[in-house]
Amino acid sequence: MMAFSMTSPADVIKDLSQRAKRRRIDAGITQRELAARAGVSYGSLRLFEETGKISLEALAKIAFVLEAEAEFEQLFPPRPPKTIEDVIDRPARQRVRRK
């Protein structure tokens, strides 16, 4: 059975920034140290931890330093097949056309 989450995108972003902050603190790394190791500006890191706003590239860099890069593989997994046609070996679609 699937669990449905009643959170908004803003809630997801805020939770993500708080988990990253907690992971940084648990690792004993200051904001300045993390920013330097990740190659992102100190201001960007502070803004991320306070508001959740950050570029995807900077987030990925921070994740590598915090040893959380593997979690990115869990984003957007392929959908399980629904029909036999989904299982048949054929080329993957590259785009969607309107009907």
Results as ranks from 00 to 15, higher is better:
Ser55Leu: 07
Gly39His: 04
Asp15Ile: 01
Arg79Gly: 05
Leu66Ile: 09
Arg95Glu: 15
Lys14Asn: 06
Arg24Leu: 02
Ala10Val: 08
Glu71Thr: 08
Lys21Pro: 00
Ala58Asn: 11
Glu67Gly: 03
Tyr42Lys: 10
Val12Leu: 14
Gln31Tyr: 04
Ala10Pro: 02
Phe4Ile: 00
Arg90Tyr: 07
Ile29Glu: 01
Lys21Tyr: 07
Glu50Leu: 10
Ile25Phe: 06
Pro78Leu: 09
Gly52Lys: 03
Leu56Arg: 09
Ser44Gly: 12
Val87Gly: 02
Ile54Lys: 05
Val96Asn: 06
Arg32Thr: 11
Arg79Asn: 06
Asp15Thr: 07
Leu47Cys: 08
Ser44Ala: 15
Leu16Thr: 13
Ser5Tyr: 06
Gly28Phe: 05
Arg79Ser: 00
Ile29Trp: 04
Arg79Asp: 04
Lys99Asp: 13
Pro81Ser: 13
Phe4Asp: 03
Leu75Asn: 04
Leu56Tyr: 13
Arg79Trp: 08
Leu75Glu: 08
Glu67Tyr: 02
Gln74Arg: 12
Val40Met: 04
Lys21Leu: 05
Ala20Gln: 00
Lys61His: 15
Ile25Asp: 11
Leu75Asp: 13
Gln74Lys: 15
Gln74Asn: 14
Lys82Leu: 07
Ala70Glu: 06
Glu71Lys: 10
Val96Gly: 09
Phe48Cys: 05
Ala38Leu: 01
Val87Arg: 12
Arg32Gly: 10
Arg79Cys: 00
Val12Ser: 14
Ala10Glu: 12
Arg46Asp: 08
Pro9Asn: 13
Arg90Cys: 13
Ala27Met: 02
Val40Asn: 05
Gly52Pro: 05
Ala60Gly: 10
Glu71His: 08
Leu47Asn: 15
Leu45Tyr: 04
Arg95Lys: 10
Arg19Lys: 14
Thr51Ile: 12
Ile54Ala: 00
Arg24Glu: 10
Phe4Glu: 08
Leu56His: 08
Ala3Pro: 01
Ser17Phe: 06
Glu67Ala: 07
Ser8Phe: 06
Ala68Lys: 08
Arg98His: 01
Pro78His: 11
Asp26Gln: 05
Pro78Glu: 15
Pro80Cys: 06
Ile13Trp: 08
Arg95Ala: 09
Ile84Tyr: 11
Leu56Ile: 15
Gln74Ser: 14
Ile62Pro: 00
Arg22His: 08
Ala27Gln: 04
Ser17Lys: 03
Ser55Gly: 12
Ala63His: 00
Thr30Asp: 14
Pro77Arg: 05
Leu66Lys: 05
Ile88Gly: 07
Arg23Ala: 04
Ile25Lys: 15
Ala20Thr: 04
Val96Cys: 01
Phe4Thr: 04
Val87Ile: 14
Phe64His: 11
Asp86Cys: 02
Leu16Cys: 13
Ala10Thr: 05
Leu59Ile: 06
Ile13Thr: 13
Leu47His: 14
Gln18Asn: 02
Gln74Val: 09
Lys53Ala: 13
Phe76Ala: 12
Val40His: 03
Ala3Gly: 03
Lys82Thr: 12
Ala60Tyr: 12
Asp86Pro: 06
Pro9Trp: 05
Val12Asp: 12
Val12His: 09
Phe4Ala: 12
Gly39Leu: 09
Pro77Gly: 02
Thr7Asn: 09
Leu16Trp: 09
Leu16Tyr: 12
Ala70Thr: 02
Leu56Lys: 07
Leu66Glu: 15
Phe64Gly: 00
Ala63Glu: 04
Arg19Val: 08
Arg22Ile: 11
Lys21Val: 00
Asp89Pro: 01
Ile25Trp: 10
Leu66Pro: 07
Gln94His: 06
